[in-house]
Design a protein around this nucleic acid. Sequence first.
DNA 1: CTCAGCTCCTGCGGGC
DNA 2: TGCCCGCAGGAGCTGA
Length: 291
Amino acid sequence: MPELPEVETVRRGLEPVVTGRRIVRIETRRSGLRFPFPPGFAARLAAATVLRLTRRAKYIIGDLDTGESLIIHLGMTGRFTALTPQGITNLGEFYFETGAGAAADGPHDHVVLHLENGARLVYSDPRRFGMMDLAATAALGAHRLLAGIGVEPLGNAFSADYLAEKFKGKAAPLKAALLDQRIVAGLGNIYVCEALHAARLSPKRKAGNVKREKLEELVRHIRAILNEAISAGGSTLQDFQHTDGSAGSFQQRFAAYDREGEACSHAGCTGTIKRITQAGRSTFYCPVCQK
DNA sequence: CTCAGCTCCTGCGGGC
DNA sequence: TGCCCGCAGGAGCTGA
């Protein structure tokens, strides 16, 4: 489920829990997630201290004092729950919950990290599309999961120039090109739909056939939408740091995604949001104003 | 090389 | 009410 803003929100939630902390023990309750855990996974993590937690694309990366880094991808349904002496916080997807129920071991709790201060970090993932691996920190860029990943959409290298070059001659539809992690890192189905709707660009357009000024608009909207979503996730997380009940859950609102049959929200547009399938995935767009 | 389709897995909601 | 089907925010792999 998580796209860049959700992964970044989880990272920010985890950061104060793990940074500078030593891992005392790790439990793996199965042999892997999407892929088997690497050889000696638990032993290589035991007694390691987390130096820093960063993000690349939809990967969370924990640099350890052992010279290795823990690489984590949440897949579609991965989530972390931090059980600390101060309380329980789920570091999840679009919403965060606290409550006694979260403390119980669930059937999908696959990995538990025990930290030296008594905190436990539980990774659960019903569909098990998530991934965890270890690699030398100095050689992270060459890791098979990270090599070849495109620019960060919130970084300086992401620009209309960049997109124009990557899209040049591309016959693939714009939707598919934006989902391609080798071009832009971290966009997923929802935010691609949202950005294309905001930029009034059809998801069916050939990527190589988008005019320069529209690419500039697209870049602007992608940045704005991701930043807005990160802000929303961050503020939600703060809410829950001060809450120990089940108060308030947060639901991101979208302009196009999952709004099939609803009126297009663009001022003056009389269109209706339509759902089509592209490359096996749902696309929501307004056929009237997205050209 | 590019691209479409399939695949992993479980849970949930809608329709009958 | 209960069952079945389709679909889900990802992305690696295969084969054309």
